[in-house]
Design a protein around this nucleic acid. Sequence first.
DNA 1: GCCAACGTTGGC
DNA 2: GCCAACGTTGGC
Length: 154
Amino acid sequence: MAYWLMKSEPDVFGIDHLAARPEQTEPWDGVRNYQARNMMRDEMKPGDQVFFYHSNCAEPGIVGIAEVAREGCPDHTAFDPDAKYFDPKSDPDNPRWYMVDVRYVRHLKRTITLAELKACDAAALDGFPLVRRGNRLSIMPVTPRQWEFILGLE
DNA sequence: GCCAACGTTGGC
DNA sequence: GCCAACGTTGGC
């Protein structure tokens, strides 16, 4: 089992939205970034644990835990001309974009903020993309060590 | 709202 | 294949 971090804007789709969904599960569609695509298509497996991160908000940080509910499959919204993330270059016979389903697990007892993670200067977080400057990946791998360390801050 | 950082596009 | 222009992300 692997660990991940997925970003979402709470104003658009936050962890409370996820928890309120039927089955508390949501397809993670609309991702149009090749690195993130590769992780969803090739690496993320059902049962993998996910830090749910709120970005672009007053207090960016990890707010909860989710899990991968379904492995990568073609992102059908890329085929729909009326969809926001329509991509005419994605061919249904050779899909360019993939998504996984994400299921709510729980809220953290408190938000572990980006500022806190940046400030704590722990060896466990060396190389963690989230705290590297200029990082824009919306999905990133988390090592078991990083996972344990961050959860230990809760 | 600003702006740095980054990814993508497209001309050449 | 280079690189300038452009669009987006996301912290602040």
